[in-house]
């Protein structure tokens, strides 16, 4: 902001006043001359008077402009202080500036309080989700244990056995969902601390994720190629990132048909380390791509498979919480590539 210049409307005010003063003085002198006749002395005196008047006026305008500029600067400083929560510039003075400053401070205060209230409410909801997930865990594991015990009772009726198996399958599903919700709520309550992250070799994280899907992949005779040197580093949290990669790999295994292929390629660029996970699976139709990272979203083709639609959402949350980015490109019927970008430093 240019605080030194005069605001244009001020100049516009000065001009008519200057004109009025000159006209008034000219009329006055003309009148006197008309009465007393032409007198050089009188003319000299009149000119001197006009010059004095103009000089006084100019000084007055100059001082006034300077005051306005100062006032604007004070105003700017006051706003700056109020914004950064510093003590006020004016201390309860009987001036318009002081009153305005306190009004502004109060307004900012109200806005900040509201923000805090919303944040607290949000945290309460997060806690509630976390509580619900934790509290349902125990009864659920009881259901699972007892249904297992029930199944082991010898000589059960065929119908009963069928029902018990149903109970088991559904409680497994519920268990998985609740586990995911616990992970999500932990993630959202800030269990990943970004400050402590430093560049670590990526290969361990990848192998950790891979070991969890290896058995499933072997069952379907899917070959997994991994290309990641030991020198490839990325800033990441090993536990959470391997969770995210695991989710992507699990999807790849799930949606890739028998004897397909999955390849993992890691490489370093200038700012990010990129991990590409390519499968030869079903692929994702282009109209579904924008939605796949949404919570509980399930693709049309994916509905035939097990799952609740939280894995990709969780993965994206984990990656973006670490300052990374996740991106997908896919061709229906040919396969999908997920690219995970993690910051190098």
């Amino acid at each position: 902001m240019n605080t030194n210049g005069t605001p244009p409307h001020f100049k516009q005010i000065h001009r008519p006043f200057l004109l009025i003063i000159i006209i008034l003085v000219a009329c006055f002198i003309g009148r006197i001359m008309f009465w007393y006749g032409f007198d050089p002395n009188l003319l000299q005196l009149a000119i001197l008077f006009i010059i004095c008047l103009l000089a006084t006026g100019a000084t007055w305008v100059w001082l006034w402009n300077r005051r306005t500029a100062n006032y604007m600067q004070t105003l700017d400083a006051a706003i700056e202080r109020a914004m950064h929560d510093q003590p006020p510039l004016t201390n309860y003075e009987e001036t318009a500036l002081s009153s305005m400053e306190h009004k502004l401070k109060r307004y900012i205060g109200i806005a900040k309080t509201n923000e805090r209230i919303i944040q607290t409410e949000k945290n309460k909801i997060k806690e509630l989700i976390s509580d619900i997930s934790h509290q349902t865990k125990t009864p659920l594991s009881n259901i699972m244990v007892f249904s297992q015990l029930l199944e082991e009772i010898p000589g059960l009726d065929e119908n009963v056995r069928y029902y018990v198996q149903h109970i088991q399958a559904q409680s497994d599903k519920l268990d998985w969902l609740i586990q995911s919700l616990i992970k999500l709520s932990r993630l959202e309550t800030g269990m990943i601390s970004l400050q402590q992250m430093e560049a670590k070799p990526l290969i361990q994280t990848l192998t950790k994720a891979l070991s969890q899907v290896y058995a499933q992949a072997e069952n379907k005779q899917i070959t997994i190629n991994i290309d990641c040197g030991t020198h490839i580093l990325a800033c990441h949290d090993v536990k959470w990132t391997s969770e995210a990669i695991f989710n992507l790999l699990e999807n790849a295994v799930k949606y890739t048909p028998h004897s397909g292929q999955i390849s993992i390629l890691a490489e370093t660029n200038e700012m990010f380390t990129c991990i590409q996970l390519t499968d030869t699976g079903l692929g994702i139709p282009s109209e579904e791509i924008p939605h796949i990272f949404k919570r509980f979203y399930r693709g049309k083709q994916a509905r035939e498979f097990e799952g609740v639609g939280i894995g990709l959402f969780l993965s994206r949350e984990i990656i973006t919480a670490q300052g990374g980015h996740i991106k997908v490109s896919s061709e229906a019927g040919k396969g999908t590539t997920f690219s995970v970008f993690l910051p190098k430093r």
Binding site: N269, E270, M271, F272, C274, G323, H325, F341
Partner: peptide, 13 residues
């Protein structure tokens, strides 16, 4: 293309 990708990610972030 690789640098483009990075610049875009940064712009978006």
């Amino acid at each position: 293309s690789k640098t483009s990708q990075e610049v875009l990610i940064l712009l978006k972030q």
